[in-house]
Amino acid sequence: MGKTTTSAALAMGLAQRGHRTAVIDFDVGLRNLDLIMGCERRVVYDFVNVINGEANINQALIRDKRCDALYVLPASQTRDKDALTKDGVGRVLEELSKTFDYIVCDSPAGIEHGAHMAMYYADDAVVVTNPEVSSVRDSDRMLGILSSKSRRAERNEAPIREYLLLTRYAPERVAKGEMLSVNDVREILSLDLLGVIPESKAVLNASNSGVPVILDTESDAGQAYHDAVGRYLGEDLPHRFLEIKKKGFFSRLMGG
């Protein structure tokens, strides 16, 4: 659904604005954030090494070469899914929060242990959804878990702030009635909309070359992520790329 692409883009966007940001891959066994960030060959230690005390956090963090404020903590490739302990994750996040302004936790798919660990300590959650029935349903399940299984829920604190980020949006298919519209999804999930990322070639190009798509400032997806970061930081920005890009002569004639 674009969780890792989104994590990479949002983390880079926050860091570019001068906020010290760490982005952590929680997908134990299926590490991929390093690849999307383009730092796969610089991984020495990982998240599980830090939790087990085999490395300290500064040894494991990889500083981004393009942005000084951004650091990546890669996931472990171990097969042991329970390597992320609740206490261990809590300790690492606690230590990171002393020196970082933002910690982006890239959740694995599903509602298993890794996903639970990624959301447990969260203050804010960005639910990444495609305009597709299974994705929307899964997102609603995830919202239920966010509201009941987090530390904030257990401690009766204010709930996690939840945002919707819709990816792979194709306005021309929405216009034809083939795809759920952004308002449909928003209505079904009743969530605040952080951004809509259009279906874009730029996303695949970005992951092919290990460059977070937000750095492709020419692209619609890059700009949409840039706007999403701005909104997250409180800027009031209109949503772009919701309409069909170029209206041809024919469609204008049909008055659609």
Binding site: R137, D140, G144, V174, K176, M179, D184, I188
Partner: peptide, 22 residues
């Protein structure tokens, strides 16, 4: 014709499902 696209079916199904799940 356009309004009868599959998106409206998807929305209807999801609304029922989500209400039940919740």
């Amino acid at each position: 014709h356009r309004q009868r696209g599959t998106a409206s079916i998807a929305k209807e199904r999801l609304q029922i499902l989500v209400a039940h799940d919740r």
